[in-house]
Design a protein around this nucleic acid. Structure first.
Length: 574
DNA sequence: GCCGTTTTCGGCCCGACTGTTTTCAGTCG
C-alpha cells in the first residue's frame, strides 16, 4: 500500500470526524498525519512501528491504525464512521459556503447524501425551512452546486499564474500606490493551484475596489473592507487581502502559508511569549509590536533564518531554520545550460539556430538539442540516418556560434521491453542521450521497473527523461519500484531529469528529494519545443527548490567541461 | 490524537466575512 493511499484514508477519517463534530484537535491530528505521509519519501507501509512513531505527528494510536491498514487493507474505525455517514456526503464538503456542520444538518434532517439530493432539496425549498439556514443560504447552495458542475477544482500552476499576472497588472494600473504580491500556493511554487491569492499593501482601499470591479469577475463571493473573494470567468477563484504597509511582512508570511507552516510558526511565537497574526508579531504581555513590516525580520524575531516560500510546507523547515541548516536552494540563474530541447527536426517549432540564440539570450552557456527518435512517428521522430545527419548540422552550426555551445543529442524512446529505439553505435556518436518513455504507460509495476532498469543498463544512456511519465491532473505516474530505479541510476551514474513542462514537473518533488538523498545526479531541464518554452526551466527549478536541493545537486549548474566529464558516457565501464 | 524549556495532563493559531441572529456560529483561508 503506497503512502498516498494511506494518506487518503486518514484524510477521509478527518473529514468524517468533522461532520460528526468531533474534537477539532483530533481532526487536525489526522489531517497532519495524512499530509506528512503524503509527502514522505520512504514507504510508510514498509516501516516498523517504532520508525513510524518517530515521524512527527504520528503517535501510538495513529501508528497502530496505519499498521492495521497496511496489514488488512482497512481500518475498523474508518469502517465504523462510514456506517454512520455515507461517504458520498464528503462530496458536499467542498462546496462554497457549505462546511461540516451544514453537511451534518442536511444529512440528519433531510437525509441528503449526494449532490443531486442537495440540488433537489434546494429547488424544492426544503433547505430554507431548516433552523439556522435561510433563503439566502439556499440560493447560495444552489449556485455552488451549479458552479461545482461547471468548473474543475485544482488547475495547473502555470494557468493560475497567467491569470494572476493579468489580474495583478490590471490592479497595478488602477491602484498604482498599492504594493501587490501573488501569495498562497503560487508563491510556494506548488504544482497545482486551487485559487489565486493576492496581497495588496496600501493605505487606501483603491485596490479593493479595483479587484471587485475587474472585468473578468463573474461573481463576488465576499466583499469586506480588507478582504474580498471573487469567481473569475474561466473558473478561478481569486482572493484579495488589503493590509497597511507596516504589516506587509507579516501579511506576506501569513498569506503565503502553508497552513501547516503557519500553525507551527504561531505555536512557536506563543512558546516564546509572542502572538503572531497577519498584522505583525506582538509581545503577549504588553502587546508591543516587535516585527511586521519585513518578512525576513519576522522570521529573525522568532529565532529563525528566512524560510524560502517553497519550503513552507511543514516538512521540517522550521527545525532546520532554527539550526541555520536550511540549504541554499538552487536558483534558475545557477543553471549554466539546458540538457533537453527540441527543434523542427522532430516536433519543435524552431530550427537549431533559433533555439541556440534564444538559449544564449537567456544567458545559458550550453544547450543540448535532443529531438525525438523514430518510434515517436507522430512527432516526426528521427531514425539513425536522419539523427546522424542532424548531429552533423548541429556541430557545423556550433562552429559559428560564439556565446553558446550546442550538444548533439537525442531523446531516445525506451521501448516497451526496455531496449533503446536506436542502435547503440548511433547513440555512441552523440554528445548526450536522454532516454524517455512515451508509450505503454499502463504496464504493471514489475514490468515497468524492469523496463527502466534495462534502460539504465544501456551504457549510452546519460539521462532518464521525465521518469514517471505523469501528466499533472490528467495521467497518473507509471507504476514502478522507484527505490530500485533510483538506486540503479545512482550506481550507474545515470542522471534523472526534472522536466520543466508545466504539466509534467517530472520527477516530482518527493522523488527528486529521494533521488538526491540516494546519491543520484539530477538535471533541471526545460524540454522546450520552442524558444519561449526555454522559460519552462522556471517550473523544473521550482520542483528542485521544493525538493530542498541546492545548486551542487544539479548537474547542469556545472560548467560544460565538467558536465561532459560527469555524463555517464564519459564514465562508463565497458 | 499529539506532545513536552512553565505541562505525561491540559493545552492545542488567528482573524475576516456572511447569514441568521439579537450576540454568534459557521465557513474560509
Amino acid at each position: 500500500m503506497d503512502n498516498l493511499a494511506i494518506a487518503r484514508v486518514l484524510a477521509e477519517i478527518a473529514d468524517l470526524l468533522e461532520i460528526k463534530g468531533e474534537n477539532p484537535f483530533k481532526i487536525r491530528a489526522y489531517r497532519n498525519a495524512a499530509e506528512a505521509i503524503g509527502h514522505e519519501t520512504q514507504s510508510i507501509a514498509a516501516l516498523s512501528d517504532a520508525e513510524r512513531r518517530a515521524l512527527p505527528g504520528i503517535g501510538k494510536d495513529l501508528a497502530a491504525k496505519i499498521a492495521e491498514l497496511a496489514g488488512t487493507g482497512s481500518i475498523a474505525y474508518h469502517q465504523e464512521l462510514i456506517r454512520e455517514f455515507p461517504p458520498t456526503i464528503l462530496d458536499l464538503l467542498n462546496l462554497q459556503g457549505v462546511g461540516p456542520k451544514t453537511v451534518a444538518v442536511l444529512y440528519s434532517q433531510l437525509g441528503i447524501r449526494t449532490l443531486d439530493d442537495l440540488e433537489a432539496a434546494a429547488r424544492a425549498g426544503r433547505i430554507k425551512a431548516i433552523r439556522g439556514l435561510g433563503a439566502r443560504k439556499e440560493a447560495q447552495i444552489l449556485k455552488a452546486v451549479t458552479e461545482r458542475r461547471s468548473v474543475a477544482g485544482r488547475r495547473l500552476a502555470s494557468e493560475a499564474l497567467a491569470t494572476a499576472d493579468s489580474l495583478v497588472a490590471d490592479l497595478a494600473e488602477r491602484a498604482p500606490l498599492a504594493h501587490l504580491t501573488i501569495v498562497g500556493s503560487l508563491r510556494r511554487g506548488c504544482e497545482t493551484s486551487g485559487d489565486i491569492d493576492i496581497l495588496a499593501s496600501a493605505s487606501s482601499p483603491d485596490a479593493m475596489q479595483a479587484f471587485t470591479d475587474y472585468r473578468l469577475v463573474e461573481r463576488v463571493l465576499a466583499h469586506g473592507d480588507t478582504k474580498a473573494s471573487v469567481l473569475l470567468s474561466g473558473g478561478f477563484q481569486a482572493d484579495l487581502r488589503l493590509v497597511p504597509p507596516e504589516s506587509l511582512g507579516a501579511a506576506l508570511q501569513y498569506f503565503t502559508g502553508s497552513k501547516a507552516h503557519n500553525i507551527a510558526l504561531r505555536e512557536r511565537a506563543l512558546a516564546r511569549g509572542f502572538t503572531l497574526n497577519e498584522y505583525g508579531l506582538f509581545r503577549l504581555d504588553d502587546n508591543v509590536k516587535v516585527a511586521g513590516d519585513d518578512e525576513a525580520a519576522l522570521y529573525a524575531a522568532l529565532g529563525l533564518t528566512f524560510v524560502p516560500p517553497e519550503l513552507r510546507e511543514g516538512r521540517g523547515e522550521i527545525a532546520a531554520a532554527e539550526g541555520s541548516a536550511l540549504p541554499r536552494l538552487v536558483e534558475q540563474t545557477d543553471l549554466r545550460g539546458d540538457l533537453h530541447s527540441h527543434t523542427t527536426a522532430s516536433d519543435g517549432r524552431a530550427d537549431i539556430d533559433t533555439m541556440a540564440r534564444a538559449a544564449a539570450a537567456m544567458g545559458l552557456q550550453y544547450l543540448a538539442i535532443t529531438d525525438h527518435s523514430k518510434s515517436l512517428a507522430m512527432a516526426n521522430g528521427l531514425d539513425e540516418h536522419r539523427l546522424l545527419e542532424h548531429a552533423r548540422a548541429i556541430r557545423r552550426l556550433n562552429e559559428r556560434l560564439e556565446h553558446i555551445t550546442l550538444l548533439a543529442g537525442v531523446e531516445c524512446d525506451i521501448r516497451a521491453d526496455g531496449t533503446m529505439d536506436l542502435a547503440h553505435d548511433c547513440l555512441a556518436e552523440l554528445d548526450i542521450v536522454v532516454a524517455s518513455i512515451h508509450s505503454g504507460h499502463a504496464q504493471e509495476a514489475a514490468q515497468m521497473t524492469d523496463r527502466l532498469l534495462r534502460a539504465i543498463e544501456c551504457p549510452w544512456v546519460d539521462v532518464i527523461g521525465h521518469p514517471s511519465g505523469r501528466a499533472i491532473l490528467r495521467r497518473e505516474p507509471v507504476a514502478a519500484d522507484w527505490t530500485r530505479v533510483i538506486q540503479a541510476a545512482a550506481t550507474a551514474g545515470v542522471a534523472l531529469e526534472i522536466n520543466g513542462q508545466p504539466d509534467r514537473r517530472d520527477l516530482n518533488e518527493q522523488l527528486a528529494r529521494q533521488a538526491h538523498e540516494t546519491g543520484a545526479m539530477l538535471v533541471i531541464s526545460s524540454d522546450a519545443h520552442s524558444p519561449a518554452a526555454l522559460g519552462q526551466l522556471r517550473w523544473s527549478t521550482l520542483v528542485a527548490r521544493r525538493a530542498w536541493l541546492s545548486a551542487d545537486a544539479i548537474l547542469n549548474t556545472a560548467a560544460l567541461d565538467d558536465v561532459r566529464r560527469r555524463l555517464r558516457r564519459a564514465r562508463r565501464t565497458m
